[in-house]
Amino acid sequence: MTEQPILDIQNLYVEYLTPRGPAQAVNNVSFSIGAGEVFGLAGESGCGKSTIAHSILRVLRPPAVITGGQIRFRGQEVLEMGDDAIEAFRWRGAAMVFQSAMNSLNPVITVGEQVMDVLETHTKMASAERRARAEELFEIVGIENKRLTSFPHQMSGGMRQRVVIAIALALNPALLIMDEPTTALDVVVQKDILRQIRRIKEKMGFSILFITHDVSLMVEISDRMGIMYAGEIVELAKSKEIFNNPIHPYTQGLLSSFPSVTGQKRKLSGIPGTPPDLISPPNGCKFHPRCSKCQPIETECAPRLTEVLPGHWVAAHAGMPLPQIAAGGSRTADQ
């Protein structure tokens, strides 16, 4: 990326301090999101993807602590912002749609008031302006204006999720963080909302950090994506590239965990075993106990994110038998 990224995360470390010892939830994660880009983080539960999202807005609660790294928003260091700056950054700079967003609405206040509440707290708009903006936001996400006076329980799950997206968009954020925004919804509604998000994005031009465990969904919606395992990014590339040419054995396993509705039926294996305990993770490559292609070196020392093809990064050891590495030479992620 030549222009300045909207969000740039370098060497982020987050630990959860538990009675059994610190759990390394995010381990040396670096990525950046360009203007207007949809960047995805995919992985299973406990891989650290939501922790990263919470770190960006600095809404992590103890026992989670950021132990290292930088999060730069338009070149400004988020982790060093004072109270006023972080207050201004949240919602205007980056807004978040949470996983259980459908249930995050206040049940005793109308949805319209909840939209206007955000505007009242964060802007100096007059009451009539707030109402006009709320109507505009509802139109953007595809809800009729008359539903402003509805209570959450009068709406379906899909509608409530649209309201939550409208609230997140209230102040025209430059970055929208969506943490499993459609996981609790039915497939048809999910598709509808994803299309709408994509359309709104084209119109308003914000960037999206999209988080989900569903890799096929991610390939559909995102431009680039990172695959996370046990707190680390193990592969990062254009989404289509990851789908067509997965290199890391975990990515390959993840992609072969989704049956298809078309084509030949074939036996899928998934991945044997379970994700590791982050308090005492395995030595070397954290995936090695579940990996079918494990090399002796990987039980000892950890691989590094390496650019094996232009724009395609994989956690690998130098000299690993990947034809791409031999052909292209390698750079490390820290550059």
Binding site: G158, V187, V188, K191, L194, R198, E220, S239, F243
Partner: peptide, 25 residues
Amino acid sequence: KLLLSAVPNPEAGLVTGDDEARGEI
């Protein structure tokens, strides 16, 4: 048909043409 069209399809991507059936159950 509607259900099938809603299944994530990485090869086709999010086709942003006319939506087929809309609404909910």
